[in-house]
Amino acid sequence: MNVKYQNLSPTDAHNIQKNNEKVLAAEIKSFSSLSVSNNEPANRYKSITKIQYIALNNMLIPSTPEFTDIDTGEVYEAVINTQNPFKRGFEQYRNYLIHRLMYTYGLRVAECLMLTKDSIGPTLPDARGDVHYVLIVQSLPNDIEDPRKRPPSLKTVNSHRHIKLDIDDYSLLTIYIESYRDPVFKKKKTKDHNILFIKYTGKLTPLTYDAVRSFYKKK
C-alpha cells in the first residue's frame, strides 16, 4: 500500500488500501457476532472498569485515627472506613499502598514485594527549587538477605526504573513506615531487614506473592 516500497501509482495504492479495509471490516464484524460457548467454562479475566476501580479503591482507603496537629494544636477526629475488610491499621495502610502501587503506577506484585524503605524519597531541588518524590524499582541490594523461600525477582532488565510519586502517596508511605512498620520492629526488638512490606505477626518476615493474592481472593 506504500508507493515508497512498491511500484504503484498513488491511485492503485489508494484502491488497494480501501479494499483491504473492507476485508478487515468484514472480518471484525464476523468476530463481533461470536458468543461464549455454553459447553465451555467462561472463566476469562479482563481489566476492571473505572467505576469498579473507584469502588475498590474507596473500600481499601485506611481509617484515620484521631490525631493532633503539632503546629496548630488542632484535634482531628478519627475517620473510620467501615467498608475496609482489614481491621488493624497496620494492615489497612500496607494493603492499600500495595493496591495503589499496582493499580496507579503499574507495579507487578513481585516489584511491590522487592521495595525497601530506601526505595522512596525526595529528589534534590530542581532549577526552580521544586522537590519531587520518587519510587525506585530495582533488585534487592546485595546487603539485604531475603528470608523468603521463593524470593521475588524483576521480570526484565527494563523493569529497573524511577517512578514519580504523587505527594499524597509519598505521605501515606511515610506514615506507614514511621507510624506502623518501624514501631513493630522496635516493639519486638527484631532486626530490621529493610524490606518495605512485611507480615504483622511472627518474625515480621517480608510478604510473599501468595499472601498478596490471598488479600484479594479471600477478603
Score class of each variant (00 low, 15 high):
Asn58Trp: 01
Met59Phe: 06
Met59Val: 14
Leu60Ser: 10
Ile61Lys: 13
Pro62Lys: 06
Pro62Asn: 09
Pro62Arg: 04
Thr64Lys: 12
Pro65Ala: 11
Glu66Leu: 10
Glu66Lys: 14
Thr68Val: 15
Val75Arg: 11
Val75Ala: 04
Val75Ile: 15
Gln83Arg: 12
Lys87Asp: 15
Lys87Glu: 15
Lys87Phe: 14
Lys87Gly: 04
Lys87Trp: 10
Gly89Pro: 04
Gly89Ala: 06
Arg94Ser: 07
His99Met: 06
His99Asn: 03
His99Leu: 10
His99Val: 00
Leu101Trp: 00
Leu101Tyr: 01
Tyr103Met: 14
Tyr105Cys: 05
Tyr105Trp: 09
Gly106Phe: 02
Gly106Val: 07
Leu107Gln: 06
Arg108Glu: 06
Arg108Lys: 07
Glu111Asp: 05
Glu111Ile: 03
Glu111Ser: 03
Cys112Met: 02
Leu113Ala: 05
Leu113Trp: 04
Met114Val: 05
Met114Leu: 15
Leu115Pro: 02
Thr116Met: 07
Thr116Ser: 12
Thr116Leu: 08
Asp118His: 11
Ser119Val: 03
Pro122Thr: 02
Pro122Trp: 00
Arg128Ile: 09
Arg128Glu: 15
His132Trp: 13
Tyr133Gln: 02
Tyr133Ser: 01
Tyr133Ile: 00
Leu135Tyr: 00
Leu140Asn: 03
Pro141Ile: 10
Asp146Leu: 05
Asp146Glu: 12
Pro147Arg: 10
Arg148Trp: 06
Pro152Ala: 07
Pro152Trp: 08
Lys155Met: 13
Thr156His: 10
Val157Trp: 01
Ser159Met: 02
Arg161Ile: 05
Arg161Leu: 07
Ile163Pro: 06
Lys164Trp: 07
Asp166Val: 03
Asp169Arg: 01
Ser171Cys: 09
Leu172His: 07
Leu172Ile: 05
Thr174Asp: 10
Thr174Met: 03
Ile177Arg: 11
Glu178Cys: 06
Glu178Phe: 03
Tyr180Leu: 08
Pro183His: 10
Val184Asp: 14
Lys186Val: 13
Lys186Cys: 08
Lys187Asp: 01
Asp192Val: 01
Asn194Gly: 00
Ile195Glu: 05
Phe197Lys: 00
Ile198Ala: 05
Tyr200Arg: 13
Thr201Val: 14
Gly202Pro: 05
Lys203Gly: 07
Leu204Val: 08
